[in-house]
Amino acid sequence: MGKARVKVPKKAKKGEIITIKTLIKHKMQRATKDKKTGKPIKRNIIHTFEAKFNGKPFLTAEWDTGISANPYTAFTHRVSESGEYEFVWKDDAGQTYTAKARIEVA
């Protein structure tokens, strides 16, 4: 769990709107009961996702159990300068997963 893949173009023109694709391995476990033992299984989903560029968040998401396992999200960003993207996922177990990518503006 927590293995993330992100797809960001390496280069862009100033002012260009690029598409970013992200995918993270996560069960997105709903609160349920173990079928054999009847023991309760705690909810553990990624509840927050954030996309930042040069430290500034430009997209944030709040997820509930209705988001599929191994959450995939694609979105856009208007590029004004070269810099670094940071993507952050947070789950119920208190884990934080991050991924980074660079973009150069010609």
């Binding site: 430009f58 709040e62 208007r78």
Partner: peptide, 19 residues
């Protein structure tokens, strides 16, 4: 299910996901 919050820096109010 989910909320996606945009900013003007988003460029477009567009999101693609799986539910």
């Amino acid at each position: 299910v989910a909320t996606f919050k945009f900013t003007p820096d988003s460029g477009k109010a567009w999101v693609s996901t799986r539910m």
